[in-house]
């Protein structure tokens, strides 16, 4: 009996930090983290952490490219779900732009096939600005090992700040 209780505790211990219920972000809660642009580069919406957290989230496993960290568990909002929530038609593609002026195009096909997320938690913790945060486009590398190519590494945009529909 005690053995089962131990396993249960361990299991809960693993998941509770991931849900992050008892944690506040390392940045102001009212800070707008992501701006959505339509095809004419007009702002559709700006989203704070609370907006993102209000949407249904799910988690994937994957690495941050190009820095040799081990894989992490990422939790966030599916881009597909975000677009649905905003009542937006699925675009042909979208450009994910980062705070560091990096950008890469994410085709719509990826949303159907891999359902990438905009992650705001890494291994259960919110992600600080100084550590690739606060938002990262993350693909489900754990489920799809074939994603380990430069194409998808390029689309794994860290410090995501803008999403331009095309």
């Amino acid at each position: 009996m005690s053995r089962y209780r131990l396993i249960l505790c361990a299991w809960l211990g693993l998941w509770f930090p991931a849900l992050g219920w008892a944690q506040s972000p390392p940045y102001p809660a009212d800070l707008s983290l992501l701006t959505l642009f339509d095809t004419h580069d007009r702002v559709i919406d700006t989203l704070t952490l609370a907006d993102l957290e209000a949407l249904p989230g799910h988690q994937v496993r994957g690495p941050i490219p190009d820095n040799d960290y081990p894989e992490s568990t990422w939790y966030g909002v599916s881009i597909r779900a975000l677009l649905e929530h905003e009542h937006l038609l699925r675009p042909h593609s979208m450009v994910a732009a980062a705070l560091n002026d990096y950008s890469e195009t994410i085709p719509d096909a990826d949303l159907t096939r891999y359902d990438p997320i905009i992650a705001y938690r890494r291994d259960g913790d919110f992600i600080p600005f100084g550590e690739y945060g606060p938002l990262i486009v993350m693909y489900p590398y754990g489920e799809h090992p074939e994603l380990h190519t430069r194409t998808y590494y390029n689309r794994t945009v860290w410090q995501l700040s803008e999403l331009h529909l095309k």
Partner: peptide, 14 residues
């Protein structure tokens, strides 16, 4: 400023 600094920190890390 803090966001900018975070961006620099992130650029430094790799």
């Amino acid at each position: 400023l803090k966001i900018r600094l975070g961006t620099v920190r992130t650029a430094l890390d790799p």
